[in-house]
Design a protein around this nucleic acid. Structure first.
Lengths: 339, 339
DNA sequence: GTCAATTGACGAAACGTTTAAGAAGCCGTA
DNA sequence: TACGGCTTCTTAAACGTTTCGTCAATTGAC
């Protein structure tokens, strides 16, 4: 079932059918209607692979998630897929390596399939050279969540530092002074921004964080559990509150505290970051900072398509609104501990 | 950068380079090595779109998730993507409509892009005609999780009925007699199998479930909350235990019970189904039945590729191992209520 | 030394589409 | 009548691969 079949049936040339199927002008009203009818009867649909070859651009976006099993990412993917579908694009989904780094083969494969644009989540700095080596210069790149400097790519994310400051301030307002930080990997721009935000707000309030109360761990629940245990061991007692690099760390830390017989938030307040779906469950009720993930996915597609239409646009950064969400894992500091 | 460029540089024909790049025989060892070297120097990679057009088959799988934001599905996607990558395939990701039904346009778009095979999760019966209308007969279809009868498609899932029986038996063994069921939509084969399994096991133990203790709701947390509320209202008191159609319903129900001042599992035991990631969190510790989602995704790819290689295989059903996971939301029935 | 079989390489057609360039018909005006 | 300017339609050349059929060169057997 090809253009040629429809053309034969309708008694016109292949070109005419092509013009009709692509809604191009220059076709008489009668023939257009006739072709449309025949195509419909025959169940004809354009072969997008052939179009892609001929035009040199495919209606396909490549999306690389850092880790698809991390509940943070699928909603971004949802936004990307929805916006892409509206624009008539398909989405190739891949994910990075287990260590959070980008897998060169994955990016290569995407390029082999002639993606029109590439969207990445949570790049790390060492991914930079890979991208410039592998991705053809005419393929737009959008990075979300994290940003690596100096690469040819648009960015979409939130003001992590501001969110972190607000969250730290929230704890300070609740009277906490003995505050620990379980930070995400400093290789991640988002994590280091958050850590910086925490530090700034605490410093402004005259609170200093001792080295043993400032731990760096990877962005998983297990890492959070281990870090919280280490916190308890090295300090000898629980902090009054803990600021975590993301929600998974926070949940892992809560696990650890509960296992030590501490209650949250009565004994220790815990705050996360991201507002993953499950943070809002009544069973958890985690205080956190929300990233508009679905909207970020949509916006990433807009950036990509805009640049596709106008390649010479200057590099752009879109910063979306975040929101401090106060729930049940943070509470007023105990009188005794607030000093 | 095309075959032609490499051929020119290596002083051989396009055909020869093609044979080399595809690891076909009939090329001398010296020329092969030379072509490989030149291709590497030039950074040449085959254009998969052109290959796809020429061969009529693309190295692409289409994956349609019922709902990407539902934490149940991304792990299936992870398995699919991993297995596909190993076989040199890319994966187009789409998702169904908000009502859980398949969107015809989505399937059409996937076919327009000449996917080699299509994998679906959680089809509903009314999706059947759509598939046979839209998907070309030479494109293998794999359905996972749920099965709709009579369509040209392989299936991969678990024995939902057996899992449900085991779970119900677990509650019976704990001494529960006043057991309610919050079932998923009966339009879903998985849900109705589970419901049937619950019923069978309860019936065998001589337990009958009153109509007001058997509610059907959709597979979301909110629906679970509402259903649990309705349960409490119409019955006047809490059941001793509740079997839920999936984990989300269970979590929603727990929410509702907690909101009514009941404790889980002291006042009421709750069991879910699926073992989504967060059911295992220490904050939840949900008793449930595990589906090996990652492996199901991988197996779906195997089925698809096998049928691609051998289209005349008889229809196949792969049933994977499930596992009853007993955690903290189910406990021995109170002496008083066990009657 | 001859001939058949094998190996290694090539030419060219095809896959289904897009699109530049051009032809045919029609209209109105000079 | 001749002609420029529309509109509508067609012809044909790509896009980058794969693969069939052919052929020259080499090998091995006699």
């Amino acid at each position: 079932m090809t253009l040629s079949d429809v053309a034969k049936q309708a008694g016109v040339s292949i070109a005419t059918v092509s013009y009709v199927m692509n809604d191009r002008g220059g076709v008489g009203e009668r023939t257009r209607a006739n072709v449309l009818r025949i195509a419909d009867e025959l169940g004809f649909r354009l072969n997008r692979v052939a179009s892609g070859l001929r035009t040199g651009r495919t209606q396909v976006l490549g999306l690389v998630l850092a880790d698809i099993t991390n509940p943070f990412y699928p909603e971004i993917a949802g936004g990307v897929i929805a916006a892409a579908a509206e624009a008539g694009f398909q989405v190739f989904l891949s994910h990075g390596g287990a260590d959070g780094r980008l897998d060169g083969e994955v990016v290569q494969a995407l390029c082999d399939h002639q993606c029109g644009a590439l969207i990445f989540t949570s790049l790390v700095v060492s991914d930079g050279p890979l991208l410039s080596d592998v991705v053809p210069p005419d393929v737009p790149i959008v990075q979300t969540v994290r940003r690596i400097p100096g690469i040819r790519a648009d960015f979409i994310g939130i003001d992590d530092r501001a969110g972190a400051r607000e969250e730290a301030q929230h704890l300070i307002d609740l009277g906490h002074r003995d505050i620990a930080v379980l930070a995400g990997p400093s290789a991640s721009s988002a994590s280091s921004e958050r850590t910086a935000g925490y530090r700034e707000a605490l410093a402004e309030a005259g609170i200093e964080v001792s080295p043993e109360s400032m731990l760096e761990c990877s962005l998983t629940g297990d890492a959070g559990t281990r870090a919280a245990q280490q916190l308890l061991e090295s300090r000898g007692h629980a902090p009054s509150a803990v600021l975590c690099g993301n929600d998974l760390i926070a949940l892992g830390a809560i696990d650890a505290f509960l296992a030590h017989g501490l209650s949250v938030p009565e004994d220790v307040s815990v705050a996360g970051y991201d507002d993953i779906w499950f943070a809002s469950s009544r069973l958890v009720q985690l205080t956190t900072v929300r990233q508009p993930r679905h909207e970020m996915g949509r916006a990433a597609v807009s950036l990509a398509l805009e640049r596709l239409a106008e390649p010479d646009l200057p590099p752009r950064e879109v910063i979306m609104e975040h929101e401090l969400v106060v729930r049940r894992t943070t509470a007023r500091a105990r009188a005794g501990t607030a000093a």
